[in-house]
Design a protein around this nucleic acid. Structure first.
Length: 464
RNA sequence: GUCCCCAUCGUCUAGCCUGGUCCAGGACGACGGCCUUUCACGCCGUUAACAGGGGUUCAAAUCCCCUUGGGGACGCCA
C-alpha cells in the first residue's frame, strides 16, 4: 500500500525551523515508505497570505532539498470546490446556516467562561432551519455526545469527548471556507493517507475526523509532533534568534547539517547522531518520534555543521564562499585558488561565515595585508626579524612551493644547522605571512599563498 | 476557567510498550589532559539525570494513582 503525505504551510511568513522539521518528517515518512510527498499552500486567509511568503517557503524547501511531487495546490484556487462540498453537507443535514453575529458568539463564550465552562458557540441556530442570507455562516452540525478517538502516530491512543467541541464554522460570512473544512476536502482529494503536523493541531484533529465521517470518507492517519522550544523552554520565537530557515543559510550553515540536526530533534535511532539523507530515508519511522517538546540547541547544530564542512568537497565550499565575503574589492577570488585554501580551513570553521573570515588574509594582496598590532610587537622583534632575514634567501631559492613538506624540511635543516628550535621562527614567520598569531599550518599556508606572494609578505614584515 | 498533552544528565536523546542484563548508555556543551609551529582537528578522561510522593511486585526509570512543574487548545487564523 503506497502512502501519501503532505506539508501544508500557510504563507503568512517565512518557513521557520518548526515548520521545516514537520516538512522534513513528512517528507521522510513518505520517502521511507516509497510514497508521495505533496505541498499545499493554505492561503484561505486572503488578508494574511502573501506571494512573497509563498515564494520564500518554496525557496527554503528547495534549499533543504525537500522536493514535493507535482505542483503545489493552492487553496485560494479552490473556493468553488469547498463550497460545493459545504452544499453537500448542508443537503445531508450535517451542516446548517447560522445568523449569529461574531459579537453574539463572543457573548456566548463569555457567559460559558463565567460559568466555569468551556467557551463554546451554544448552538442557537442549530435547529432553526435557516437558509442562506447576507453575512450568514455555515456551521457543522456535530454530534453532542459520544467520543471521537484516533490513534496518533506519535502520541498513541487519543480521544476527545464530542461535547467538548462546538459547531465549527465551515463557511464564513464572506463565503470563504475555513481551515478545517478546506483541510479535510483537500487531504481527501489529494489522497493524503498520513498527516504529520505540529502539536498545535491536536485539537483540530477530532473535528476533522467528524468531517471525514460526515462525508463518508476514509480517515487518514494522524501524527502530532511536539513543538520546538527556545533555550528558556518557552516556545521558540524571534527573540530566541533566528527562526527562518533561510537565516541559517545566511549564517553559513549547510543544508545537510540543518536537516541532520532537525531530524535528531525529536526523533532518534539508537545512538546514531550522523545521518546521511539516504540513511534518514531508510531508518525513519514515526515510532521513534518523541512525544515531548525539545529545546533548540545552536551548539549542537554548530558541531554538525563543522562535521559536514569537513566532509564537503573543497570545490563545493569554494563555490559557496564568495557570498559570505563582504567587501570583495581587490580580493583574489578565483575558484581554483579558493578551492586550494578551503582544505586548510575545513577543520577550523564551524560555519561558512567563519570560514570566510579565516580566508580573508589569503585573499588580500601583500600590500594590503592587515597586520595585527599586538602580534607584530610580540613576534616581530629585532631578533626574530634578523632570523627571518637570514631565512629569506632560502625561501627565495626554494623552487617547490607546491610541496609544503619540502618547505618544512628545508626550514628544519636551516634551523638544525644553527642549533635552533622550530619555535624560534614559527610565530614570527606566521605573523609575517598572515598578520596574525593564529592560522593554519605554516607551510601549507605558504604553499597555498605561492612563492611570489609569500616572499612579498616576508619582505613587507621585515620592513615593518 | 474548561479540555488535552508532556516530564531521564545544562541540552538532544537511548532505555519504558514486552519490569530484573541500568548504582541508567550515547551525543552536544563545559572542564581537564594528550598531540602540536599557533589556532583548530583528532584522541583520552571528568562532570552530570530517572521531578516528588504513594502504591503493585521478590524486583520499577520501566506498570498504576496522586502532587508539582511545563506546554498546548478553546477564532467568521491556520
Amino acid at each position: 500500500m503506497s502512502i501519501t503525505t503532505r506539508f501544508a504551510p500557510s504563507p503568512t511568513g517565512y518557513l521557520h525551523i518548526g515548520g521545516a522539521r514537520t516538512a522534513l518528517f513528512s517528507w521522510l515518512l513518505a520517502k521511507s515508505k516509497g510514497g508521495r510527498f505533496l505541498l499545499r499552500v493554505e492561503d484561505t486567509d486572503r488578508e494574511r497570505s502573501t506571494k512573497e511568503a509563498t515564494d520564500a517557503i518554496i525557496q527554503a524547501m528547495a534549499w533543504l532539498d525537500l522536493a514535493a511531487e507535482g505542483t503545489a495546490v493552492f487553496q485560494s484556487d479552490r473556493f468553488d470546490i469547498y463550497n460545493s462540498y459545504i452544499d453537500k453537507l448542508l443537503a445531508a443535514g450535517h451542516a446548517y446556516w447560522c445568523s449569529c453575529t461574531p459579537e453574539e458568539v463572543e457573548a456566548m463564550r463569555e457567559k460559558a467562561r463565567a460559568q466555569g465552562k468551556k467557551p463554546k458557540y451554544d448552538g442557537h441556530c442549530r435547529e432553526l432551519g435557516l437558509g442562506p442570507g447576507e453575512g450568514r455562516v455555515v456551521r457543522f452540525k456535530g454530534p453532542q455526545d459520544g467520543v471521537t478517538a484516533f490513534h496518533d502516530m506519535v502520541k498513541g491512543p487519543t480521544a476527545v469527548q464530542n461535547a467538548e467541541m462546538d459547531d465549527m464554522i465551515l463557511r464564513r460570512g464572506d463565503g470563504t471556507p475555513t481551515y478545517n473544512l478546506a483541510v479535510v476536502v483537500d487531504d481527501h482529494e489529494m489522497g493524503v493517507t498520513h498527516v504529520l503536523r505540529g502539536d498545535d493541531h491536536v485539537a483540530n484533529t477530532p473535528r476533522q475526523i467528524l468531517l471525514y465521517q460526515a462525508f463518508g470518507w476514509d480517515v487518514p492517519n494522524f501524527g502530532h509532533v511536539p513543538m520546538i522550544l527556545g533555550p528558556d523552554k518557552a516556545k521558540l520565537s524571534k527573540r530566541h534568534g533566528a527562526l527562518s530557515v533561510m537565516e541559517y543559510k545566511n549564517m553559513g550553515y549547510l543544508p545537510e547539517a540543518l536537516v541532520n540536526y532537525l531530524a535528531r530533534l525529536g526523533w532518534s535511532c539508537g545512538d546514531q547522531e550522523i545521518f546521511s539523507r539516504e540513511e534518514l530515508v531508510k531508518l525513519f519511522s514515526t515510532g521513534n518520534l518523541g512525544s515531548s517538546p525539545s529545546v533548540f540547541d545552536m551548539k549542537k547544530l554548530d558541531w554538525l555543521n563543522a562535521h559536514y564542512i569537513k566532509e564537503s568537497a573543497p570545490e563545493r565550499l569554494a563555490a559557496l564562499l564568495p557570498e559570505f565575503i563582504g567587501d570583495q574589492d581587490g580580493l583574489k577570488l578565483d575558484p581554483a585558488y579558493l578551492a586550494s585554501i578551503v582544505p586548510l580551513l575545513q577543520p577550523r570553521a564551524k560555519t561558512l561565515v567563519e570560514m570566510a573570515e579565516m580566508a580573508r588574509f589569503f585573499l588580500v594582496p601583500a600590500e594590503a595585508l592587515a597586520y595585527d598590532e599586538k602580534a607584530v610587537t610580540a613576534q616581530l622583534t629585532p631578533d626574530s626579524k634578523a632570523l627571518l632575514a637570514e631565512l629569506l634567501p632560502m625561501y627565495e631559492t626554494a623552487a617547490d612551493y607546491a610541496d609544503h613538506k619540502a618547505l618544512e624540511a628545508a626550514t628544519q635543516a636551516f634551523l638544525d644547522e644553527r642549533g635552533l628550535k622550530f619555535k624560534a621562527v614559527a610565530q614570527p614567520l606566521r605573523v609575517a605571512l598572515t598578520g596574525k598569531t593564529a592560522s593554519p599550518g605554516l607551510f601549507e599556508t605558504m604553499s597555498v599563498l605561492g612563492k611570489p606572494e609569500a616572499l612579498k609578505r616576508i619582505r613587507r614584515a621585515l620592513a615593518l
